[in-house]
Every structure is written in C-alpha cells, then in structure tokens.
Amino acid sequence: MNDMALLLWARGPGLQIALVVFIAGMLLKLFEIFSLGRKKDLSTPRPGKAWSGLKTIFSRSLPDKTLLKRSFPTYLMGYTFHIGFFIALLFLAPHIELFRNTTGLGWPALPGALVDGISLLTIVALLLMLGYRLYHPVKRFLSTFDDYASWALTMAPLLSGYLAFHHLLLPYTQMLALHILSVELLLVCMPFTKLFHTVSLFISRWYNGDALGHKGARL
C-alpha cells in the first residue's frame, strides 16, 4: 500500500469505521452510566442551592487555591496541555475545514505559526506530565495501563500533526495519513478508556455539585 492509498483509506473507510465506533460507543457508555442511577437522597434539600450542579460544572474548571499550591506542576502542565490541545484542534485552518465539511459550521482560523508554537508547548507539557507521573511515587502507584494508554493516544495525533506540519521524519503524505489514523484510533478508544472523561466530567461535576448543594455545602 503506498502513502496515497493509506491517506485515502484514512480519509474514507478508516474515518467511517472510527466514527461508527466512536458514536455508538459514546452513546452506549452514556446509557450505561445513566441507567445505573443513584440512591434517592431522602433528606430535605438545603435552601438556595438549586443550581449548584450546573455551577460546579464551571467552577471546577478553576483551580482550588490549596490544591494549586500543593501540586502546582500538575495544574500548570494540565492547563497548558488542555488549552493547547483545544486551540490546535479548533483553530488550525485544515481542522476548521474538516468541521465545516462535516457539520457545516465554520469559524476563522489562527495563523499557522501561532498554532504551531502552541502545539509544541502542548507536546512539551504532555511529555513533562508523563515524566512527572513516572517520577512521583504516589502518581506512579496510582497509574494503570489505562493512564499510559490514554496518554499515548492523546500524544500520537499531536506529535504526528506537528511532524506533518513541519514535513519532518516521514514524507508529508505518509505523516498526514498517520496523523489522521492516530485521530481515528483516539476516537475508537475514547469511549472505552479514561479519555471518556471528555464527556463524563460534566456528569460527575454536576452530580457532585448537586449532592453537595443538597447538603448545603459552600461551593
């Protein structure tokens, strides 16, 4: 199979398969989670806390002061990675073209050089996160195969995209094919790894916020 054939497979059948697994898998997981249900809290809800679930979805995106001080590297690298990843995903012109083509929605792109710099920063942050995970005894103890797999699945599109953008290591056509394939692998694995947090974090934040609000905790 030559590079072009690989690229065409990635842009055609590969994408179809990945999308099917991704969409079906995500829905399956969501149904599974919601159908588990929770025990009804029979206590009287405290007053004035009706929106605490919704509020927590947003408020938990901001760092807690005590935790920020205690594990600053985790926060710094975590924010850098997440923000950088979304900028690269949403503001590189070819990516926007993909969204426009599939969903009909489009928005202006950022200059390639800016997205490029941010991507590099994101890759560095991810590498440091892996290093810190391996170095820190507690983190290492808590890490499972899922954590490392999720890291690799996230790193692959970033790295291959960066290398493709700069025409490094492999011919561009081949690297672009690998980049698209790595994204497809990410989509396929998303429902079945810790990467599901992209969706489940909203559910758990709402649940936690609502439960705490019910008890009258300050949020």
Binding site: R11, G12, Q16, P94, E97, L98, N101, L176
Partner: peptide, 10 residues
C-alpha cells in the same frame, strides 16, 4: 474539498 476533509460522506 480541502485535503483534511473526508472523501466519503459521514
């Protein structure tokens, strides 16, 4: 259609 888009409708 741009190079980054699918070649078959999804």
């Amino acid at each position: 259609h741009a190079l980054s888009t699918p070649i078959t409708p999804v």
